Computed example of a mutant assay.
Amino acid sequence: MSLRPLFPQTRLRRLRYSKVVRNMVAETSLSADDLIMPLFVCPGEKVKNPIKSMPGNDQLSVDLLVEKCKDLYASGVKSVLLFGIPESKDEDGTVATHEHGIVQKATRAIKEVLPEMYIIADICNCEYTTHGHCGTIIDGDVDNDSTLVTLSAQAVSLAEAGVDMVAPSDMMDGRIGHMRAALDENCFEKIPIMAYSAKYASGFYGPFRDAADSAPQFGDRSTYQMDPRNSDEAMREVEADIAEGADIVMVKPALSYLDVIYRCKHEFNMPVAAYNVSGEFSMVKAAEERDWIDGQRVMMEIMTSIKRAGADIIITYHAQEVAEILNKR
């Protein structure tokens, strides 16, 4: 008995039999141009401190960081996000505002050798304060408004050193407007701001805190980072940052917040970045090491899911691996 009369006219598999056609009708595309690689710079020369919880990632002194940037650029990754590990820390993070700060040094060194590399500087105080919080502590809590002064000074200092973009990750209220005004007043009106707009108080940051030596010495960051239960609040954060002058808005982490990425893109039609954070990266690597998953396949599936959710830009520790796979394709 023929099934043809009983079968629907639409057969979705018709467009899946050929790889050529699958590529033609693919709804989501991933490119090395979408990727930003986070890097950690530390004092010294020829220093390479492996980050045990993040296989393949290291704290690098400026000289080795420049070499890493050369490798990244050759692979097709043309942008990096810099985090600094300073020689010394202070109570309010002013060490990050100094002309000869660690990220300022790294920026000048990279630009001297590889001027075409696009450098984004993370703007926050957690790596630079003795207490590990993202701002100035007053009466046992991070004081919002006094922290804005330090953050804006840090942004101006890094712009003077030659960064191409600043990315404030502190989650203080009003920081985008304050920073935009400070940059403009110092003739850096062309420097864009990528705002960590919806940054959640997440358990996925553990390996990063090892890498950046930025774990808080007391309490947690729940008074300034977002509650993972909220997405409407994230839209309010994004809306506020856009109104204050953000050029790109970011959701962090990525995988547990794909719904937030989707909402950001569709409700605001702004360039959206997603940070595929250290814990997300390390879970893949740990499972891959135990032969529980096909690491490359899962990595590419994750990247595609973030793009499919609506991200234009993906900040990821997988960046070079992903670019090299895309090059082969």
Rank of each mutant, 00 (worst) to 15 (best):
S2D: 13
K252E: 07
V260A: 12
Y118F: 15
Q225Y: 02
A159M: 03
M283K: 02
Q9R: 14
I120A: 06
L183M: 05
I306M: 07
S79L: 04
Y224W: 06
D184Q: 11
M226Y: 01
G56F: 08
E237I: 01
E45P: 06
Q154M: 11
A243F: 11
V249C: 10
K19Q: 14
V272G: 01
K68I: 10
P253G: 07
R209P: 09
M194G: 00
D173Y: 10
C187N: 15
D170N: 09
K285M: 14
M283G: 08
G310Y: 00
I191S: 04
M172R: 07
L35F: 08
W292F: 15
M300T: 05
V47G: 06
S31Y: 06
P86A: 11
K199C: 09
L183V: 03
Q154W: 02
S169I: 03
K46Q: 14
V277H: 03
S79V: 02
E27D: 12
M303Q: 09
G245W: 01
R13G: 13
C264V: 08
T97W: 01
M300N: 08
A311Y: 01
Q225M: 07
P55R: 07
D184K: 09
N276F: 05
L255I: 09
Q320A: 08
L65Y: 00
A211D: 06
L114R: 00
L81S: 01
A243P: 09
E321L: 08
R236P: 13
T136S: 13
T147R: 00
R329S: 14
E87C: 10
L3S: 12
M24Q: 15
D141A: 15
Q9V: 13
K285P: 08
T129E: 06
L151R: 00
K285G: 09
Y17L: 15
P43Y: 05
E27N: 11
A32M: 08
K285I: 07
L3F: 12
S2H: 12
R229W: 11
V25K: 04
R297L: 13
M179L: 10
L326I: 10
Y73N: 11
